[in-house]
């Protein structure tokens, strides 16, 4: 078994404040996980704002350098040291961003991004070959070149734009996509088409996806494995079904309890147990703790008794 991506004990601290009151915040603390090359999977990072999930994604894309620890992609450090290495890395690890309405320059036609991707990463020169590559990728996401060519972003819906963005990312045939909250800004009626698409990419095209979200329900729906992050720390990690059906860490349990269910629509059940909130809040700043493995395969952070 070869590893596709290996995140090894990665931390990232940001310096805040001025010269006199210099504070450091740990955005990510000692995160470790790895993805295997043979079995494509959807690996989900769950967290609220300030959990460090986006920082972690940026580090995997090579947009930030870890303060300590290392991230390797196929055995080489992510990002690439030289320009050639960097291009090779970008061809293999592609991002999908959060806001489809911001994903393309509103003043420019969408197809130019796809065209540029095909020309740079596939090395295509011939016009028909470029168009064929664009059309293939667009067909994969349920669009076609005829629908997209010459269109401006405002002429398409959020769902179509997000699909076009995913098609763009798929052109170099990357083994790994990093999708940072890809559906949080997409309309409800179009959201599932994107989520189903990510699933199809894994099942039919063998693409691994790192899916970053705050939404437990879609995470449960599509992911194989997941990690739950609280204030930069992984608090629980394991098989998605196992963890979400029966979360063990108090913070994971609070998150699950906070999901608004539609099962009892109209009953107006909204109260959250305040003890749960208090416990989870206390653990956010509790010192250290370490991930301990459980018989069912999950890892849970446990803390020294205070």
């Amino acid at each position: 078994m070869t590893t596709l991506l290996n995140v090894d004990n990665v931390s990232k601290t940001f310096a805040m404040g001025g010269l006199l009151s210099r504070k450091t915040t740990a955005a990510v603390q000692n995160a470790s996980f790895s993805l295997a090359a043979e079995t494509p999977e959807i690996f989900t990072i769950i967290g609220e704002s300030g959990s460090g999930k986006t920082t972690l994604a940026r580090m995997i894309l090579g947009l930030e350098t870890p303060t300590t620890g290392s991230i390797t992609f196929r055995g080489k450090p992510v990002g690439g040291a030289t320009k050639v290495e960097r291009m090779a890395f970008m061809a293999a690890v592609q991002p999908v961003f959060q806001n489809p309405f911001e994903a393309f320059n509103p003043l420019k036609q969408i197809d130019r991004y796809l065209e540029s991707t095909a020309r740079t990463f596939l090395g295509l020169k011939d016009r028909t070959a470029v168009e064929r590559a664009m059309d293939e990728a667009l067909q994969t996401v349920g669009l076609s070149l005829a629908e997209v060519k010459g269109r401006y972003p405002h002429e398409m819906s959020g769902g179509q734009l997000q699909r076009a963005a995913i098609a763009r990312a798929l052109i170099p045939n990357p083994p790994l996509l990093i999708a940072d909250e890809p559906v949080s800004m997409v309309d409800a009626s179009l959201r599932m088409s994107i989520v189903n698409l990510l699933k199809a990419l894994r099942d039919d095209f063998g693409v691994s996806v790192i899916y970053i979200t705050h939404d437990l329900a879609t995470a449960y729906y599509i992911s194989n494995r997941l990690i739950i992050m609280q204030r930069g720390r992984i608090v629980e990690m394991g098989d998605a079904r196992t963890v979400l059906e029966n979360p063990e860490h108090p913070y994971s349990r609070l998150l699950k309890a906070s999901v608004l269910s539609t099962e009892d629509a109209g009953d107006g059940k909204l109260a959250t147990n305040p003890d749960m909130v208090a416990l989870a809040t206390r653990l956010a700043t509790a010192p250290g703790g370490q991930l301990v493995s459980r018989p069912d395969g999950r890892l849970v952070r446990v803390y020294e008794p205070v």
Partner: peptide, 16 residues
Amino acid sequence: PRIGDTTQRPALEGRP
């Protein structure tokens, strides 16, 4: 989607 249910969810095609 709901936790505890992984059956395929329908997606609505077209655009608003």
